[in-house]
Computed example of a mutant assay.
Amino acid sequence: MAKSYDDLKAVFAYYPIHPKSVKLLDTRGGRSKWLIESQEGPMILRQEYINPKRMLFIAGAHWHLQNNGLPIARLIPTAQGSLCLSGGDHVYLLYEALEGEPLLYYNKQHMIKAMKFTGAFHHASEGYLPPSGSKRRTRIGKWKKLYRWKIQELEDNKKIAQKDPEDEWSRLFIEQVDRMLKRGYEALEELDQSGFAHWTEASIRSGVFCQQDDTMARMMIKNGQAVMKDLHSITIDLPARDLRIILNKLMKKLDVWDTDTAVDLLRAYDSIHPLSKEQYRVLWTDLKFPHLFCAIAHKYYLGQKKSWGDEKFLMNFRKIVSVENSKTEFLSQLDPIYQKIKEGSADG
């Protein structure tokens, strides 16, 4: 990995910039970032170990969003007009370094700004034509396969837990798993509804895409609005995916599903990127599926969180059970909640 200005000279030679200093900001997960002070202003250089064709797909999306007016850090092409620079088994991206305030999960106005940004993101993504030679990533049309895989994993984990009923994790897991499996099977059956197929077909035609992991961590507040510091990944999928992910994250921070807050957040999103009742029905299906419950069980049984002890796993498991179970009332109120969403825009 390059560590200094001298190491990165060959990279800078491809860009129309005049660097003055280089500072390594972060290295983890196959990704490194440097802060570049240049005559043209502060910039971020990102090095990532990824298939260059895949990165071209992401960089093309970044360029598309930028050109469609989304508040996102400006991507800087090479002097030859390339959106990213291949180093063989790794790729470089250069974009402006933004300054602003962090978005806070426990601040409702910040949460509303994040939801409005998500709406703007989906609106700006429409019409994306990936660059020639790029490799698309898509999950659209694969929801049934994903649901079935997660349900089967829960069924397998249930058998493991039943073999050790005296274990605290197993005991709590067994208490909840049948309820979660019921919701999973119901959600799987609901994917046969016409709205899911219609939205899938419309999304494929429109070119809309989602983030892989919609999170406030990649946003900041600048000039009173949420802006994106960088774009790590995208996938072709229904906007409902991003909405489900960010709503579940926000409610997990609150330790409970707060229906009033969820309505305000969806109203904020809808004020920028309106959805039909049929489309909200698809979102309700994805929120019904116990994604959070499946995720923590997956982490536990595969030992993916090496730094978590039993107490931390149990603490997070109880929090997720609280969120999933308290979501039931919300899920039963699609009609009145849809009316509330359409009543007006949330402030933020």
Rank of each mutant, 00 (worst) to 15 (best):
G60R: 09
G100A: 10
S125T: 04
K33A: 13
R179V: 03
S276F: 02
E278F: 00
R179G: 10
D156S: 11
E329Y: 08
M219W: 09
Y95L: 01
E166H: 07
T78Q: 04
R137N: 13
K33I: 07
P290N: 09
S307L: 05
K299A: 11
S4Q: 09
E201V: 11
D89L: 00
A202W: 08
Y338C: 06
E101P: 01
E166I: 03
W257M: 06
A226Q: 11
A13M: 06
Q47A: 13
G224D: 12
I140F: 02
R218W: 08
E168I: 12
I44Y: 03
D26Y: 08
Q80Y: 04
W63A: 14
A295M: 07
Y300G: 02
Y14P: 01
H122Q: 12
R139C: 02
I341Q: 09
K142C: 03
L250F: 02
I204E: 15
S271I: 05
G344C: 03
K9C: 07
S194I: 11
P71E: 14
Y5M: 14
K305Q: 14
S4D: 12
A59H: 06
V22H: 03
R137D: 08
H110R: 06
M219V: 00
H273I: 01
Q176I: 00
I140G: 02
K222P: 00
A346S: 15
S21N: 11
G60Q: 06
N316V: 00
D270S: 06
R74K: 15
R171H: 12
P165W: 06
G207M: 06
A262T: 15
Q47Y: 12
L104A: 15
E175D: 15
V282I: 13
K142G: 00
L56I: 02
S4T: 15
R218H: 10
D156I: 00
Y95C: 03
S21G: 07
A262V: 10
Y92G: 12
N68I: 00
G88W: 02
S82H: 14
H198C: 04
G184A: 04
K150H: 13
